[in-house]
Amino acid sequence: MIKNEISVSIQTPQWKCVESREDSKRLHYGRFTLSPLRKGQANTIGIAMRRALLEEVEGTCITRVKFQNITNEYSAIIGIEESVHDILMNLKEIILRSDVYGIREGSIHIIGPKKVTTQDIILPPSVRIIDTTQHIANIKNSITLDIRVNIEKGRGYIIQNPNHFNSKDGIFPIDAIFMPVRNVNFSIHSYWNGNEIQEMLFLEIWTNGGLVPREALYEASRNLIHLLIPFMRTEEQDIDETDYIPPALLFPGRMKEDVLKDDIFIDQFNLSYRIYKNLKKANINTLSDLLNYSPEDLMKMKYIDKHSIQQILDILRSFGFDLPLNRN
Rank of each mutant, 00 (worst) to 15 (best):
K92V: 10
R128H: 06
R128T: 15
F269V: 06
K168D: 09
N4M: 12
L271G: 03
E22P: 07
K300P: 10
N270K: 14
I151Q: 04
V18S: 15
D267Y: 15
R21M: 03
I159K: 07
L217D: 02
D243I: 15
L298A: 08
L271Y: 03
N141F: 15
R21H: 03
I205Y: 05
R327P: 13
I229P: 08
F178D: 02
I45P: 00
D322W: 11
L54E: 01
P13L: 02
L224Y: 06
Q119C: 14
L279G: 00
P162G: 01
S142L: 04
I62Y: 01
W192I: 10
P13D: 04
K261H: 11
D23Q: 01
G102E: 01
N163K: 15
V127H: 06
V127G: 05
G102R: 01
V18K: 08
N283Q: 11
I77N: 09
S107K: 04
Q68D: 15
M200A: 08
A248T: 07
G253M: 13
L323M: 10
L201K: 05
S9H: 08
S190V: 03
Q237L: 13
I264W: 02
L34E: 02
M255G: 15
N69I: 12
D99L: 11
I315F: 12
L325H: 04
E204R: 06
S126K: 15
S272A: 09
M232Q: 14
M179I: 09
Q41T: 03
D267F: 07
M179R: 15
G46Y: 00
V149N: 10
I147M: 09
D23W: 01
G79L: 01
T71H: 12
S75Y: 05
H135N: 06
E5K: 11
E196W: 08
L313F: 08
T242E: 12
R327W: 10
I2W: 07
M1H: 13
Y293V: 04
I264P: 00
N161Q: 04
I266T: 00
S288P: 05
I2M: 07
L211V: 08
D263M: 10
S221Y: 10
H226M: 10
I225K: 15
N285P: 11
K280D: 12
E235M: 15
Y273H: 04
L298T: 08
I245R: 03
H189A: 04
M200C: 04
D289G: 00
M301C: 01
N150D: 06
D243F: 02
T234S: 01
M89L: 12
H307D: 10
V65M: 00
S20Y: 12
E196Y: 05
N285D: 09
T132G: 14
N69G: 11
D263F: 02
T44L: 00
N278S: 07
G106L: 08
A76P: 12
H85Y: 14
I158Y: 05
M232P: 11
Y244K: 00
K140W: 05
C61K: 02
S308F: 13
F321N: 06
F265Q: 05
R21I: 05
A220C: 02
I197S: 14
I312Y: 12
L323Y: 07
L145E: 10
E215V: 05
R214L: 03
D175E: 03
E199S: 07
